[in-house]
Design a binder for these strands. Sequence first.
DNA 1: CGCGGTGTTGATCGTAATCAACGGCTGTGG
DNA 2: CCACAGCCGTTGATTACGATCAACACCGCG
Lengths: 241, 241
Amino acid sequence: MSRQDIHNSGVPEVCQACQARHGGICGALSPEELTELNRHTKRVKVAAGSELLAEQQPIASYANILSGVVKLSKLLEDGRQQIVGLQFAPDLLGRPFRELSNVTAEAAVDAELCTFTRAALEQAVSGSHAMASRLHQQSLRELDDAREWMLTLGRKTASEKVASFLALIVSANDVGKEAPEAEPNVELPLSRGETADFLGLTIETVSRQMSALRKNEIIEFTNAYTVKVKDRAGLGAAAGT
Amino acid sequence: MSRQDIHNSGVPEVCQACQARHGGICGALSPEELTELNRHTKRVKVAAGSELLAEQQPIASYANILSGVVKLSKLLEDGRQQIVGLQFAPDLLGRPFRELSNVTAEAAVDAELCTFTRAALEQAVSGSHAMASRLHQQSLRELDDAREWMLTLGRKTASEKVASFLALIVSANDVGKEAPEAEPNVELPLSRGETADFLGLTIETVSRQMSALRKNEIIEFTNAYTVKVKDRAGLGAAAGT
DNA sequence: CGCGGTGTTGATCGTAATCAACGGCTGTGG
DNA sequence: CCACAGCCGTTGATTACGATCAACACCGCG
């Protein structure tokens, strides 16, 4: 049995090293509350492409994202699609206080989740002001992100959009690091088609703009999904912010 | 002195008929809590065009919107602008839990506000779980709206965008009504230029698409800002949802 | 009455969409 | 092990939608 320092005493084993206990909502809970919530959770691995929530369908379960990337999207009747958000660990998946989801959520890459029911979430929230506050903070962060992306969708050019997407992935890659890497190597969680749906563009335009960034020596591809950013400042400038 | 029924006993005079006590956050407060909050509020009228919050600037005060329309916008360095949200009574203006605003807020038309400091808001929130919940609910509603608009910005055509904007104004006009009007007369809160900034289009394109809707007998103008919707179903269809 | 601001309409241009061909990687079956 | 099929991404050619440039109408106001 591993040593338990005073800080972790009483914290469930599976929660000990969990990301959600740092930035995530579980960080707001006392060991006792965490133990209680943990009685209702289940850890699952989901493969890339798995549908986790469906637009206008009941939310089967909520979940903390432990690893991987989840994409949130909306559809028009004729099939046009828009990705309206990307979620990373330790974000909470599932809209609080609502029966139905208003987005489709899908694992963009293989991911691990810590799932629980709405009842369990609501119990934890009603018992803990701090938990409610964390949840609200995350909603506000998502709102800030959505509005930032509205500016990108409405007013940026195709090349600025693609650079903005890469900058977003790079900044997600930075979190938890001491300092930003000078020439980070990042794995793109989205295919060209998904990237197009995120940016309000077509596959071809995304591809062309990626090629343009490569020709300008801002980025370098080892393959279509693995990018080394050679010029972070240049990427930021190309993103228009 | 006016008669006070048991329901309103102890409720401050100015709050008696206030919109914010119905859909708004003040509805969550007891008469005592309302009285306390009211000690820190100030009602103000602001003219169309007044700047209420500035991007990246400290939030001088929070406010409930009592009447009028407030537009939230973001700027790119070269002056390109995107309106990222419209707020109506009884919405709360100002981002909770944050020193700086990340949007510019401006009265789109003459408006009335009930302002208070962040300290007063935080006191009310920390003292009332119901208040915190209302606040969170509004954040979530704004998030839903933002994502819905992302779909519009990223994937709809110019004519669908303009129809979506009119549909939005019409639906805001419906709230508080028993039943939706068949042929509502609505006042547009935005100029053509602002509408363009909301839709990610240019003034000319907005104007042309408005004219197209008029030619198709979906809408009728009495002047540039006053629209009668002659065919609600047609407008919905043109909006693509 | 003339001026400035806003909105509409027309003409032309340019960016991104569409249409099309091809290349590279992967996985499968001969 | 190689051949081939299918998918995804890239690149090229052409089109089309909305932007830009431009002229004018309308309205309120000094």
